[in-house]
Amino acid sequence: MVGTTPVNPLESGEVDEKPALKIGVLALQGDFIEHIQMFRKLGVEAVEVRKPSQLAELDGLIIPGGESTTICRLIDLFGFEDELRKFVDDRRALWGTCAGMIVIARELTDPYPEPLRLMDISVSRNWFGRQVDSFEDEFEFSGIEGGPFLAVFIRAPVVESVGEGVEVIARLEDGKPVAVRSENLLATAFHPELTDDSRVHEYFLAMAREGVANRR
């Protein structure tokens, strides 16, 4: 069967001159499949990550939406922390959505869980209240063309403060930061993977490509 396997032109690099990327989505718990489907729609290889040893082969990793207490506990139980730190130090792209934003924060205004301190942001969990307070909003996203972005907030966090070098790329009307970037790190309080709009995923792929270029 090996000889008959079709070659993906994006992976082989024959069509696209951009480097072929391999993106992972942390699949310990949460809506990882929605992210994977979004990347596959964009023609990018995307895999579920359940073991720390898988990180070495990736150009980018998403920590998806889910329950941050659960994801933090499983990251700890299955020994991801050191590998994740190495991943970020190696300038590979990392994106946390909602729970993922909480997981990578430097500190939380809540007593638990214990975040990984990968990105210099302070985050408040469930900032808008309970599920009945979940909502949608539209706003501009700095660095993304094509008009306002629809954002779905589900028991969502917000960024309370950012450290030096962290750029706020989207805010709610009242000024609360809900998307932030610092070099190879991206965090969004909302869920682009629950819409049909792939612009934030494409933005992240560009970050992953920068990382590949920097590592060469």
């Binding site: 699949a27 310990l28 718990q29 949460g30 809506d31 990882f32 499949i33 929605e34 939406g65 889910g66 329950e67 207490t69 659960t70 506990r73 499983l74 139980l77 909602c98 729970a99 599920q131 979940s134 909502f135 949608e136 779905v152 907030f153 589900i154 028991r155 869920h191 629950l194």
Partner: peptide, 30 residues
């Protein structure tokens, strides 16, 4: 948002509890 919260629960365990202490044990277990 309603169906989206269920998406966030995927791959997870929802536990029956009858006291706040049990709820805390459940949360601590993930």
């Amino acid at each position: 948002e309603k169906s989206g919260l269920a998406q966030m629960l995927k791959g997870g365990v929802i536990m029956d509890v009858v006291t706040p202490d049990q709820a805390k044990i459940a949360e601590d277990a993930g």
